[in-house]
Nucleic acid binder design. Structure first.
Lengths: 104, 104
DNA sequence: TCGAACTGCAACCACAGGGTTGCGATCTGA
DNA sequence: TCAGATCGCAACCCTGTGGTTGCAGTTCGA
């Protein structure tokens, strides 16, 4: 359950993967097409696409002989909501502790 | 601007750091105190606390001779909201492209 | 049918970073 | 004042992983 969040965050913690994601956010594309725009090799992009697919941020779609990848914003939004829930829980907890401390 | 998001995500992409954050989410604690609960050395925890502090997820508070760290849920919530905005942008963009494709 | 483009697999390299141990400095409390 | 606890710094190890090159297999188009 929570390991999903850390896996997604780990996938999002890389500049190159973000450049891939933002490129795919504009329009679906294949690894070869991405390799022409980005300053890394096709195989490097393929590796990144694999980890992005594994955490569900990206989805492959076969179109003829090429494999296009499209970004899945729903997964990103889902983890974002989990993170926000954790954040507000921390804030509330800290406020409670401060209130108790002031009672002393 | 956006480098902040990838830095925070990179910081959140580690199991040990999450165990530290969840421990701090219950109550502020020092590196030494955390080292008694977690199966890693104090210095390892100190390193993790440094990267967490650098991205603003954690804040040091001197209490006597020890340095207590408290978690900052507001920063987590802020990045969560940015991620969600990006996610819905991707979804909308993809829906637009599908609509155009069906027009052909 | 044949070449060109796209994909997949494998080997390899180099560096970041998570982890440890050790030591010296500093501060607290009895 | 002095002993124990706490912190900070430094050196070191080692695995993970981002990146490359090379080659073989498929599939489309002329």
């Amino acid at each position: 359950m929570n390991e999903v969040v850390v896996a997604v965050c780990a996938a999002l913690g890389d500049e190159t993967r973000w450049s891939i994601l933002t490129a795919l956010g504009e329009a679906p594309a294949s690894a070869s097409a991405l390799a022409t725009r980005l300053p890394v090799s096709r195989q490097a992009i393929a590796k990144h696409l694999e980890v992005l697919q594994r955490v569900g941020l990206v989805e492959p779609v076969r179109v003829g002989r090429e494999v296009r990848y499209q970004v899945l914003g729903s997964e990103l939004s889902a983890t974002a909501r989990r993170l926000e829930a954790i954040g507000v829980a921390w804030e509330r907890r800290l406020a409670d502790i401060k209130a108790i401390a002031e009672d002393l």
